[in-house]
Simulated scan of single mutants.
Amino acid sequence: MLQINDLTIFKSGQQLLELGQLAVGPGEIATVMGPSGSGKSTLLRWMLGEPLADFSCSGELWLDQQRIDGLPIHRRQLGLMYQKGDLFPHMSVAENLQFALPRSLSRQQANIKVAEALEHVGLSDKLSAMPDQLSGGEQSRIALLRSLLAEPKAILLDEPFSALDTELRQSIRSWTFAQLAQRQIPAVLVTHDPEDICSDGPVVTLGGKKRND
């Protein structure tokens, strides 16, 4: 369970957003919507634990019954997926995925893990490919795989489908939601597109109210 309690964020002394409570269960995807400047990305940065210059924040962030808003980034066990996948352009697909794995694994163990992950999503032939040789959909799938290989307890999704065309967007969205549900990982999705809303999870409109329909 991922939960936010009584969050208020101010920017330069002005209130940017207020969120009373948001609870996301295993495999659920909470959708956060709002216009540009409403604080969607700032919310994710606060959850992740990034430094927020000119911001002041109060509130609680809980994950699996542990309060984590006071922990550094590397101890929060949160994954993150950006708009365009954010793969390292100078690394192959295999190297991008290996980057997420624990350093305690041997090279052979890491190679096996990566090969199994790519086979699971039908991308075994992309093992040695560079990011600029991948389609938009392939980049999105590799980016999510990289996040999952780090074994996060929850994942933050920052407009992850916005760079895709309409048909591919629907396909990748469904695939992403299925992967998270299968692994029972709670997720928070930030988007401006109502089509991205996961029907099974809570929806928050910043500046508005939470709904669960």
Rank of each mutant, 00 (worst) to 15 (best):
S199L: 12
N212C: 14
A129Y: 12
N96F: 07
L48H: 03
S124K: 13
W175R: 04
L17Y: 00
E28V: 01
Q15N: 08
Q108N: 09
R75Y: 08
I155Y: 00
R211L: 10
A187Q: 01
P160Y: 04
M33W: 02
I73D: 06
N111S: 14
R103G: 11
R183L: 15
P51V: 05
I197V: 15
D200K: 04
R76L: 13
L123W: 06
A163P: 07
S199H: 14
E138F: 09
K84P: 02
L71G: 03
P51L: 09
T31P: 04
R75G: 07
V190D: 02
S58A: 12
G59A: 09
Q139V: 15
A181L: 10
G13E: 10
N96P: 11
E159V: 01
D125T: 13
L157D: 02
D64K: 08
M47D: 00
M47G: 00
R169D: 08
S171H: 14
A115K: 13
G37N: 12
E95P: 04
T8F: 04
C198P: 03
P51C: 10
D54M: 08
F10E: 14
L22G: 01
R107G: 07
G79M: 04
A110E: 09
V188G: 00
S171M: 13
L145H: 10
V24G: 00
P131Q: 08
R67W: 04
K11F: 14
L134N: 10
L206T: 10
N111G: 14
S128C: 07
T31M: 09
S12C: 07
L61C: 06
P89E: 09
A100G: 13
T31W: 00
R76Q: 12
Q83T: 11
A23T: 15
Q170F: 03
R169N: 12
S36Q: 05
D165C: 11
